[in-house]
Design a protein around this nucleic acid. Structure first.
Lengths: 329, 329
DNA sequence: ATTATTTTCGCAATCGTTTGCGGTTCCGAA
DNA sequence: TTCGGAACCGCAAACGATTGCGAAAATAAT
């Protein structure tokens, strides 16, 4: 008998629904014998509480929203993976929606989250989002928000980010230490704050060392990174090292490296900021500074849980970086 | 005023809750003037229906479950991507749970889906699952199930699969057409039915042509594929082509190719079964037979929608394959 | 003016669960 | 015998929305 309810159990035993409810929760008001009977019947009827009804009454759905530009992305994957692992321990589930980097869909999605009364939402902003008014409504609806990765420029929100500054600095210093003198540095979309932070930090280190020549380029997609690399590696004076701000860029650059049969690290060095998967698929493996989506997910969960406990002050938190030696520099 | 309810609107306008409900749904019983007032107030109060309450009453949550071994997997990603895109059109959302290839967690997850009264579940079985009794309960609870990719051997369930046989045949024939005579064919875990199907089809074609030498090897992970390739490419008689059953294997093989500086396709040809992303990151791009997670997702959705409409007969459906010319063969 | 018919709306039940409050029953103590 | 207090359980409201049915008011028909 699937879909048993408290009422059915009550009718069979000829007792009230409230007694059944209390018995199943081991409430002290109920006698041992009654509890026994109720629990046995519940067992044989395969009773399972209707979460929807429980949610309505408790006003707590135990569901978190996760909004990302696209799920087909290694970085977001590992973020989602971490979050799913973590919140499950506390009995929460995930409702994942993709924005497709479209602010209109983003707003639609927020509406869905509100209507479903999720307990909180993890948000990575789309590339195109400039106006974050829509997110205010969530605050009004008392739904905690934790931004990650692409976060708004607003101290009124909780944000967890990669330690972009630190990571870019580590990479820059590694390049200097290896005495690289003619560096191609490829960054992503300049609109993104993530790009700005990495770029600024990288530049700062480089400017301290005037004997180093750095060319800064920007690529929104792998293909652009590939053609940029193509251009530079056909110069008489080839770069002696390439810095890749992201996996996407690394992939593009490496395709060019393969095309031109450039020997790494003999002819040129490579260093990237990465989650760690892609650096491992090449030979030699790429030296990278880790920017872990997984650890970011864990951190975001921690923050979310604090929000649920009523923490008021908003903060910006960072996950630290780690240098991972490959053989490419 | 966030979290407005029908009741609040009713109180303000001094009318009944039912009238408010009908007015918002444009019910003919309600006068135009009343509708006007209700809708305006709903607008200013930013009323949004409580999906939880609606669900309880309608017994329809408009949420699908998606259970996969792990979300950090390109193939499942594109599947989930497709499903999310598709079901959103019909107003559905997704609740994603990972099994971690653990049958016990799988059963736990099914319970969560039942308690949340999801409208249906897309399931990819874990590698370890042998007993599928737990899935019977879903049928009893009247929750439609659509299995994909790793599906049970049971005609009582709906299944959508890649056309493994067809894809493996296409790849095999491409190898023959290119007059390859000494082929290394790397397959995945032999336990998986997906491996068996691909292997059988591939072998069948190859056996029709006795002049071709094929070495069959099996790798559960990228690293294993890499060391297998390493072994074969150090032989006096190098393979003149490699067949890779999956992206995972392709990545491992390609790492070896890079390590040994083997020229593709001059020294050896490569062909793979793949979703299409990884073949594009190498130069030359890898020739592959497409096994699209995305299209599998679309197909699974179609089937799910039919289940909701009450289709009784269960079927096994396949997504066709497509040959994609790279430059690696 | 009286009856018939619309138009317009409210009552109350329902979905399944939880919980404050009050009401029996029963036991032992005064 | 009577009172006090556990021990045990049910009533009813609540969460928010939907809907069949009946009722009042307004309009039309006779």
């Amino acid at each position: 008998m699937a879909n048993a309810t408290l009422k059915k159990i009550a009718q069979v035993l000829d007792i009230s629904v409230s007694t059944v409810s209390r018995a199943l929760k081991n409430h002290p008001d109920i006698s041992a014998s009654t509890k026994q009977k109720v629990m046995e019947l519940a067992e044989t009827l395969e009773y399972e509480p209707n979460a929807v009804a429980v949610n309505l009454r408790s006003k707590n759905t135990k569901v978190f929203g996760v909004m990302i530009p696209s799920i087909t992305n290694n970085f977001y994957d590992s973020f989602v993976n971490a979050v799913e692992e973590e919140v499950k321990k506390a009995g929460y589930s995930l409702m994942i929606l993709q924005s497709g980097d479209d602010p209109a869909i983003e707003i639609e999605n927020l509406k869905i989250y509100r209507q479903n009364r999720v307990s909180g939402v993890f948000v990575c902003l789309s590339k195109e989002t400039t106006n974050i008014d829509a997110f205010h409504k969530m605050k009004e609806a008392n739904i905690p928000l934790v931004f990650f990765d692409k976060v708004p420029d607003n101290d009124a929100y909780d944000r967890v980010c990669l330690a972009d500054k630190e990571a870019a600095e580590m990479a820059a210093e590694a390049l200097l230490q290896k005495k690289k003198k003619n560096i191609l540095a490829v960054f992503g979309n300049t609109q993104l704050s993530i790009t700005k932070r990495r770029l600024d930090a990288f530049k700062k280190i480089m400017q301290q060392n005037t004997s180093v020549d750095v060319a800064y380029e920007f690529a929104g997609k792998s293909e652009e990174a590939e053609s940029i690399a193509q251009r530079y590696f056909q110069l008489k004076k080839m770069p002696d090292a390439v810095f890749c701000m992201s996996d996407e860029i690394l992939v593009g650059v490496m395709k060019c490296i393969q095309r031109l049969h450039i020997n790494v690290p003999a002819q040129t060095g490579i260093i990237a900021l990465s989650d760690g998967y892609f650096p491992g698929i090449y030979y030699p493996e790429i030296t990278y500074v880790e920017t872990s989506g997984y650890r970011l997910g864990k951190l975001a969960c921690e923050r979310m849980m604090e929000c649920l406990k009523g923490k008021e002050e908003t903060t910006e938190l960072f996950v630290s970086s780690r240098f991972a030696e490959g053989g490419s520099l």
